[in-house]
Design a protein around this nucleic acid. Sequence first.
DNA 1: TAGATTGTTAATCGATTAACAATC
DNA 2: TAGATTGTTAATCGATTAACAATC
Lengths: 238, 238
Amino acid sequence: MVADVDTPRVIPEPSLRRLPQYYQFLVRLARADVRNVSCSQIGVELKFDPTQIRKDLAFTGINGKPNVGYGVTDLIRGIEDLLGWNNVKDAFLAGAGNLGAALLGYSGFKQRGLNIVAAFDIDPQKIGRQVAGKHVLSLSKLSDLARRMHIHLGIIATPENAAQSVAHLMVEGGIRAIWNFAPVHLKVPENVIVQSESLESSLGALSFKVEQALKAELGKGSTDNGREPGGGLAGEEI
Amino acid sequence: MVADVDTPRVIPEPSLRRLPQYYQFLVRLARADVRNVSCSQIGVELKFDPTQIRKDLAFTGINGKPNVGYGVTDLIRGIEDLLGWNNVKDAFLAGAGNLGAALLGYSGFKQRGLNIVAAFDIDPQKIGRQVAGKHVLSLSKLSDLARRMHIHLGIIATPENAAQSVAHLMVEGGIRAIWNFAPVHLKVPENVIVQSESLESSLGALSFKVEQALKAELGKGSTDNGREPGGGLAGEEI
DNA sequence: TAGATTGTTAATCGATTAACAATC
DNA sequence: TAGATTGTTAATCGATTAACAATC
């Protein structure tokens, strides 16, 4: 039995999603040469409960000092270790459209250990060219290359209708985790990790709230509603 | 007292985020001329608990029939009503880079009542041109135009360092809700709704899970690790 | 020292899941 | 009718918040 060599800790999803936010703030503090930080300081900045932050930070194994707080650089390193941001993870990206280009060009990934090795597309116009400094290859090569290069992470930035078949290609190539930006629920074997960014879900939540807010305001009898007659974009000088 | 005319129901965030996913599936069913659907069918497709789905759907006020299920088109309309997808919401988008272009070009928004009226940027190269069929105007006009056109929704697709100041411009212009795609926690007055899409958070959660999975596998003594010597991208014919 | 802050246990809150009567 | 499925109440689970002793 070699299991439990490296305790596969379970960390609640909400904590996992807050940690990167602390990280971001901590990096800003470090740049400003701040040495220590307390949970309440973080809480004020990010609007979280200090106790909650303390519990989240405990997952890193970093200890704070009473009356002093946590060492900023300690925490930064602790979070990097915990999330695996110190280990480079190579990835393939499928879909070299605008969204794909945005992801390929996002500089923040490098710092988080995410290295997008190449992009894939079906469009012959795009294949062979570069986008944001990365080669665009034919989608038909994805599986084979992923296997040969031991790529374990795939990013899907294709239109909705291509996403499922691309996911299949990725699984074929031995990819273990998929970061999905297409608005579909992907069907993959259960040992493959899928993380979907659902714009639809977000837009749903947002528009419900906007709707509620506007209704609430109407209820209060505001008159600032309806478009001003001459307020259109038409005659606007640019 | 005119409040409570239209009950400002509170719906849990998780439900709010699942409803659009049901919607998506329901639209697919409707296209395939499926008339009725049960919670277990939805559950199998999207990997949710049927009881949970039943509770979520109850928020729409649509009733199902025992032994039959829910009317697909009824549900579709019910969700649209609930989320406010039937009322067009005009929006301004700031940041006409790749991400902005991807959002401007996303056809799904129209169906959800989101109408991006114009884009704004500081880059003189972009100002005056069109991106995905939308005019790009100078950021300096955002506040004034938002006020005159009664735009209530702003989308931020700028780089990190511009986001906070753009948020400020939006608030100045009377915008009530901001959909933020920049990796920063925005500071806005408390009556302004902010919905942030945090790629960092997602990447954190994803990379932790990938890390765990790879560790678990190592523990099991797999040998399929490390890069194959000649497997690089270098000599790859395109 | 006094006060702020940590680390941790206990209490609360909310969301998910189970159980089951009603009914098509 | 029998069986599937809804709608709803109760039980469980997990995450957030409160309380407080330890300590720098």
